[in-house]
Design a protein around this nucleic acid. Structure first.
Length: 214
DNA sequence: GCGACAG
DNA sequence: ATCTTGTCGC
């Protein structure tokens, strides 16, 4: 499919994104990530208890490498395998932390937002680098935060999760607000820069992808 | 035309 | 993202 059609689809789906605070208490928080093998993609979703952050369950799935990575269209590449993973989960999480952007995207539909809308579940985008928006560097102590913005509009947060390390680019995916983003990302990333649920999913998907290559 | 560009 | 050991800095 052409990127022009994908763009129109992103704009259509972005209208379905809802930004509002999570009302229900979060008991299960998940980390979502995808690794690339030679011939396929490997997805992993790890479900953790909150706020204890103990692993409760995890699922893996594989899917064909159908589309290359194109900046701005990452979700079309990674969503199929993630939908497959989600269906396998027994304890559906109250919130999912996704490796990528939420609404901090040229058409307001990063991977986390796209996934949240399709699954109708709360998601937060946790990216290691910027895709869209302007910002000034947050101060050095952990917890320091700056706004990621486009003109007058705020599209995300640049949050320092560890002293003197590169900040994370956080943005609402779906069914959460900016305050939730700050709160849940900071409370799930204390020992390392990356939130624990995402670190787990990253490591697990990577190990599985490595096996496929052997 | 020239840079920027999640994973 | 991925290829990869030691190593510089806090």
């Amino acid at each position: 499919m052409k990127t022009d059609d994908l763009k129109l689809n992103q704009i259509r789906l972005a209208k379905k994104v809802i930004l509002r605070g999570i009302k229900k208490r979060v008991r299960f928080i998940a980390g979502v990530d995808v690794a690339v093998a030679r011939e396929c993609l490997v997805g992993c979703i790890g479900i953790f208890s909150f706020p204890e952050l103990k692993l409760v369950e995890y699922v893996k799935a594989t899917a064909p490498d159908s589309m290359p990575y194109v900046p701005g269209f990452l979700s079309y590449r990674e969503i199929p395998v993630l939908i497959k993973c989600y269906k396998k989960i027994r304890n559906k999480p109250d919130l999912m932390l996704v490796d990528g952007q939420g609404i901090a995207h040229p058409r307001a539909l990063g991977l986390a937002s796209h996934l949240g809308v399709l699954l109708n579940t709360p998601t937060i985008g946790c990216a290691k680098s910027r895709l869209y928006g302007e910002f000034v560097d947050p101060n050095n102590p952990r917890g320091s935060c700056e706004l990621l913005r486009v003109g007058d509009e705020t599209i995300g947060l640049v949050l320092r999760t560890r002293d003197k390390t590169k900040p994370l680019f956080i943005s609402p995916g779906h069914l959460v607000d900016f305050e939730d983003c700050r709160k849940y990302v900071l409370s799930s990333a204390s020992r390392y820069r990356i939130p624990e649920p995402i670190r787990f999913a990253h490591k697990t998907a990577g190990e599985e992808a490595r096996r496929f290559n052997v």
